[in-house]
Simulated scan of single mutants.
Amino acid sequence: MFVKICGATTAEEVHAVADAGADLLGLWHEVPGGRADLPADRLAELAAAARATGRLEPVLVTFGTDAAALAATAAHAGTGWIQLHGYQRPALVRSLRAELPEGTRIVKVLHVHGDTSPEAGLIRAYERAGTDLFLLDATTADGRLGSTAHTLDDSVAAALADRMERPFLLAGGLRPDNRDRYPATLAHPGFLGIDADSAARGDAGLLDAARTADLVRAWRTP
């Protein structure tokens, strides 16, 4: 099971996440108003720090919609994963795939509110355009995206997964104590791992090794 922790802004957080046993580190760029949004040079610094741990793979997490600019940023930072966290269309995935080096993974977030996802009807189009995997995440009633601490219903997540031919990560308010809420999702053949943010943070709001380790241990233990 992959464990992705999102929203690092300091080298100390990078090392905390690596020490806790996570695999992927989300670094925000072009996330307007995001508390963890990074300029391109800082993104590159933290991506290098992640790779230097020998464990973490940095993931560029973005609301961006300019394929050429995103590919240039990914090349500058040396990130082999790009997560499109927003309502980008399949055409952007297609353009981005054409711009990126072979082997770069494109993750498309599917946003879920209640029991529906506005992108559900585009799953096949995203796959044809070059999406490698999906990430299922919950939105709030007022439309906020990402790091909302809102959870998905297990049956809704599993039903969306049934419509995919690509693997997926599960996000949305995941904590050490709620793994047992997702039996159908965890048993799905496409399930690849989890993505978390809030549950990995300490009292000061920074990513914390102990909190992250608790999360990793709980979700990797049957």
Rank of each mutant, 00 (worst) to 15 (best):
L170P: 09
L46R: 02
R201V: 08
L38F: 05
G80L: 04
N178W: 01
I106V: 14
L27A: 03
R220T: 14
G172E: 11
H111F: 09
R97D: 13
Q83V: 01
A68R: 07
A91T: 13
R105C: 10
L110I: 05
A98V: 03
D19A: 15
F134G: 03
H188C: 08
T10W: 08
R217F: 09
C6W: 00
P32Q: 11
A138Y: 13
R55A: 12
A20T: 11
V14P: 12
F168T: 05
A72S: 14
A141Y: 11
D37C: 03
D195E: 12
R105F: 05
A91C: 06
L60V: 00
R163A: 15
S117Q: 08
A67V: 02
R89Q: 13
A141K: 14
A120R: 12
E57P: 04
V17E: 09
P39K: 05
L122E: 15
A69K: 01
G172V: 01
G172D: 12
A218K: 05
T79R: 03
R217K: 11
L136K: 03
D19L: 13
G121P: 10
A157W: 02
F63M: 13
A68T: 13
A120D: 14
R144V: 06
E102S: 11
A209P: 13
L110R: 02
D180N: 12
L207P: 09
A68W: 00
A159T: 13
A209N: 12
R42E: 01
L192T: 11
L92T: 07
H113A: 14
A20E: 08
A40T: 10
G146H: 10
A36F: 05
R163L: 15
L169R: 04
G64F: 00
D66G: 01
G205Y: 03
L110F: 10
T104N: 12
D203P: 13
P101K: 02
I194Q: 07
F191C: 07
V216F: 05
L215P: 13
L24A: 08
A20M: 05
A200G: 09
G121L: 08
A44M: 03
L43A: 05
A138E: 13
R124F: 04
A50I: 00
A200L: 06
E99D: 12
E102G: 07
E119K: 02
V14R: 12
G173D: 11
L70D: 05
A213S: 12
